[in-house]
Simulated scan of single mutants.
Amino acid sequence: METLRFEYLGGTPPAVQAPTLTGVVGSGNLEVLVEAAPGSGSCVIEITTAAVGFGHIWQAVIDDFHARHGLCDLRISVNDVGATPAVVSLRLDQAIETFLGDAA
């Protein structure tokens, strides 16, 4: 297992919402937990993955995610069992959409 942590400063804070969990950890899949972190001024994304040695791929996917959504005051936890970058990107988008609800 490998743990990766990415932090992005600045962005738009969303209205505080209840934590949301999207996806299921299973073969080739992942789950994403999104939680409000009011006043932090950052978006922290922590990934626990069974696919060791792919930090540069994760960096690219997470950079793209933050560039598209530009949110702060969030903590996102990802538990991965080998999902492809496309699945990761889709699941992150689903998690944010679910978290934001009507505010999206």
Rank of each mutant, 00 (worst) to 15 (best):
E2S: 13
T3K: 13
T3S: 08
T3W: 00
L4G: 01
R5D: 00
F6M: 00
F6R: 00
E7P: 07
L9V: 10
L9E: 15
G10H: 11
G10W: 04
G11H: 12
T12D: 10
T12I: 14
P13Q: 13
P13I: 03
P14G: 11
A15F: 03
Q17Y: 02
P19I: 01
V24G: 00
G28D: 05
N29K: 13
E31N: 10
V32R: 05
V32K: 01
A36E: 03
A36K: 01
A37E: 14
P38A: 12
G39F: 08
G41I: 12
C43F: 04
C43M: 12
V44K: 13
I45P: 02
I47M: 08
T48R: 12
T48H: 08
T49I: 07
A50I: 10
V52C: 14
V52N: 11
G53V: 13
G53E: 14
F54P: 05
F54T: 15
F54L: 15
F54I: 15
G55M: 12
G55E: 15
H56V: 13
I57C: 14
I57T: 15
W58V: 07
W58G: 04
W58N: 09
A60F: 09
A60E: 11
V61M: 07
V61Q: 08
I62H: 06
D64M: 10
F65S: 09
F65M: 09
A67G: 07
R68D: 13
R68S: 14
I76S: 01
I76W: 09
S77D: 05
V81I: 00
V81D: 11
G82V: 08
G82D: 05
P85E: 10
V88H: 10
V88N: 00
V88S: 05
S89M: 06
R91C: 08
Q94R: 07
E97V: 04
E97C: 12
T98H: 12
T98Q: 15
F99P: 00
L100E: 05
L100T: 04
